[in-house]
């Protein structure tokens, strides 16, 4: 067996799926397949693995649970979910707990999955030598947080959480329109964006995605009552959203998520290469291409300034 090939793991309780995938990837990778998630975790403890691609619905352990464990055991391993279910809870779990790189739907497209896995492996390999920043590097005074939401109650609830639950003096900015988002980005270096998915009638997910695309250090959280599986999947693949939280604001949850997000932001700042792990996919359906173009134009200006 060619041991110089990168190692990837496929986990699915349907053995025919993993057999098929093994054959598909065996030319370029050292492919290990498991129909039992716990065995996959055992393997991971003993071996260097670049990517784990897991099914969601399995009898002994769900994909989200598995990928959360993968994250603990081997943080450098890229995590992908391959599933036929667009079950909302699983998608939210894969964001908040699994912190996955991509969500791939079954039946998959051969070229797309090859490309996605190649990308994930390439990122894992390039970061193998990059040490994760030590905790002391993550200390800091306050950061700028940006709330994008046209509901004043939500904004004031978040501000209150930041003031009362967090130790550090973060500065909270609040934007109620795309224009004011631009205006704030021009003035301030934003660490964490806490955004709704809609402003009024307008879908602002292109804004969230483009922000991440052109500003990879920014850590985004989505806080919304909107629940749509396909929109969420797009926010993973095209926006690498760090947390997805339900409305109304739950204090402890929001506080913990902001702490995590700030920590992530500082880690990315200390070791900018790490941002690769959260590289986003090309936006597939620019529902509001006018908005996307405006944002892209703005981002270009901002970076050249």
């Amino acid at each position: 067996m060619a041991s110089d090939k990168p190692t990837i793991l496929f986990v699915d309780d349907e053995e025919r799926i993993v057999r098929s995938l093994r054959m598909m990837f065996r030319a370029d990778y050292n492919v290990k397949v498991f129909t039992n998630g716990f065995e996959a975790l055992e393997f991971l403890k003993e071996n260097r693995v670049q990517a784990v691609i897991s099914d969601q619905r399995m009898p002994s352990i769900t994909g989200v649970e598995l990928l959360r464990e993968v994250r603990n055991i081997s943080p450098n391993t890229m995590r992908l979910l391959l599933t036929g279910y667009s079950d909302l809870e699983a998608i939210v779990g894969s964001i908040n707990e699994g912190e996955i790189f991509r969500y791939i739907s079954k039946p998959w497209n051969a070229d797309e999955i090859r490309e996605t896995v190649a990308k994930a492996v390439e990122i894992a390999q390039s970061l193998e030598q990059v040490a994760l920043p030590a905790n002391r590097d993550l200390a800091g005074a306050g950061e700028h947080l940006l709330i994008i939401d046209d509901d004043p109650d939500t904004a004031s609830a978040i501000k209150q959480v930041v003031e009362e639950e967090l130790d550090q003096p973060h500065v909270v900015e609040w934007a109620v329109s795309v224009d004011s988002v631009f205006e704030i980005l021009e003035r301030k270096e934003i660490a964490v964006v806490i955004s709704e998915m809609h402003l009024g009638e307008r879908d602002i997910t292109p804004l969230i995605k483009t922000l991440k695309r052109y500003n990879p250090n920014v850590v985004t959280m989505v806080l919304t009552s909107f629940r749509d599986a396909s929109a969420l999947v797009a926010l993973i693949n095209e926006g690498q959203v760090h947390r997805f939280l339900p409305k109304p604001v739950r204090r402890k949850l929001v506080a913990k998520s902001i702490r995590d997000a700030v920590e992530r932001y500082r880690a990315l700042k200390a070791a900018p290469q790490l941002a690769k792990r959260h590289q986003v996919e090309e936006i597939k359906k620019p529902a509001d291409s006018g908005l996307s173009n405006r944002i892209i134009g703005f981002m270009r200006r901002l970076r050249t300034a």
Partner: peptide, 16 residues
């Protein structure tokens, strides 16, 4: 969903 799983590997196998 029941059809999705076999469809996934059948399609992949034939492509391969």
């Amino acid at each position: 969903h029941e059809i999705n799983t076999p469809l996934g590997y059948v399609k992949n196998n034939i492509e391969m």
